[in-house]
Design a binder for these strands. Sequence first.
RNA 1: GGCCCGGUGGUGUAGCCUGGUUUAACACACCGCCCUGUCAAGGCGGAGAUCGCCGGUUCAAAUCCGGUCCGGGUCGCCA
Length: 604
Amino acid sequence: MLKSVGCGSLRLEHAGQSVSLAGWVHRRRDHGGLVFIDLRDSTGLVQLVFHPEEAPDAFNVAERFRAEWVAQVTGTVRPRPEGTANPNLDTGDVEVLASAAVVLNPSRTPPFDVSQDAPVDELLRMRYRYLDLRRPFMRENLRMRHRAVKFIRDYLDERGFVEIETPILIKSTPEGARDFLVPSRIHQGSFYALPQSPQQLKQLLMVAGTDRYFQIARCFRDEDPRADRLPEFTQLDLEMAFVDRDDIVALMTDLYTDLIRTIRPDKRVPLPVPHFTFEEAMARFGSDKPDIRFGLEIADFSPIVEASEFKVFSGVVANGGVVKGFAAPGLASIPRRQADELIELAKRYGAHGLVTIALDEAAGSLDTLTLDHVRTPARALALDEIRAMAAACGAAPGDLILIVAGEDPQSSSTLGQLRLHMGERLGLADPDTIALCVITDFPLFDWNENEQRWDSVHHPFTSPFEDHWERLEVDPGSALSRAYDLAANGYELAGGSIRIHERARQEAIFRILGHYAENVEEQFGHLLEAFEYGAPPHGGFAGGIDRLVMILSDKADSIRDTIAFTKTQIGVDPLFGAPSPVDQAQLDQLGLALAPRSPDTETQ
RNA sequence: GGCCCGGUGGUGUAGCCUGGUUUAACACACCGCCCUGUCAAGGCGGAGAUCGCCGGUUCAAAUCCGGUCCGGGUCGCCA
């Protein structure tokens, strides 16, 4: 070993010990006659002192040190002189008086400052990811990820779960997200797909009698990324046999609460974790993954305005729509320009418009409110209607009521987005709280207007409520599923369902989804056949590891900050230069020919 | 595919709206010199960008216009 101890491990108790250290020059402070070097390795930092009289050779080497040079240093640990301890450093009570120093490898000046967390262009960070990962916050994020995954493995191992790997090259099923395809060399013209999730594989493991399975599984979906979503991601994938919904929900909830409280003991996790039905979550928060760290709950004004003189509202209600809204406290005197921006925001989130009602603080109370205190484009609203709406959403004088009128669920969902926007703007979401909630009773299907057919809300293997099977033939939209989600601070942490384990019932679902029998046999025959060989009742869930770490970390601005190597929004890896063209010989082996490029792409 | 924000020394930004008074400014980093208790070390000095790219308008473009590329956000998409 080139070192006897880690830089970050040294404490007062090591004083007097002779040690050898190896690491990177984090910072240097050259006083001419005295040189301080902060040496960094994976364990942390320690200050080295180079003294020209005590060790002239080492001093001369240290004078050449620059940022990120790799050095090996031997010396003696000693307490820092009176008054020079650094309380900001774990090793701040000691320093190492160097007796010898060796340059193991010099470094070019790094393209950005590795010694601190200052913002750097993300493309540059990706191109020099190995330097980016030296930065303190990225190292912390990766360690936090490690601890989260280790916690999960230990927790599940203690409860009798077995981790089983499933293949990365599987069969393409053109449902759901776009598949990443891999051409087969042996079977030219045929393709493997990378798994979007090991869903069917883990169900087959249940048929195999595994009973309690989990996997830290890599998954792939060829769709455009978001700040909280990547085409290539890792999920905790879990499945159990002989369970009902509440068993899995309890396991999922306990696992995540214990995990958060272990890894971030400084965070508040409100307990017990509340449960909402999908309907209730949509009604109150306008989201199926609500951020419940703050209120701003949505109220239904439809009954109040159904006979209003304000025809925009009464007309929408008459046509089967809804009028809903919530109160933004203290924003009554919001400038016109900002109010217009809110309207633009509402339109971007799918509403036709947004009606605001500002209640002048001077009104004192709702009882003493007059129309003179009300500022709204909806002049035809009567005073008692305004009072009733304010009361319904908890608005007081000084507040701004935001109202959307239109179809539901679109209107609720728009209000849900506006609610998040307002929560952020008003600073209502406590950053030191991770507020979990469980959502249940999702619809089994929703109607796809564009393609005029039913889609699975979760996935087609999800079981409806036992007593909702008969609804499927008459009114599929009314059937509720045995699916559940765990949400945290407005993100979906995990989600799953009790599955269908009987062939006939699975086929019935496929029929409603519009699959023809021969397609079902081709795509899902293996699963259906397995169900005929004693498939036990089973269910499970999956949760994104990347997103979990993002929620756990205060230092991850995007999901990309939770993984070691990442790609740009258009799937380019600037470090390796992927994707890249391949040799003609490789194409020939696969029996592939590239389609000619169109002339305008040729010139690019 | 749509929309929004951004691209100026190595890094992070200002300048852009309102074109000329900028030799393109500032901080950090870098290089040199000084400096024996600093830890965001300090002091002095220096080098470094024709402003993503192409084209246009203009006497004059970092600044205005069009196109394009790249990065990010977002809608679509993500059963």
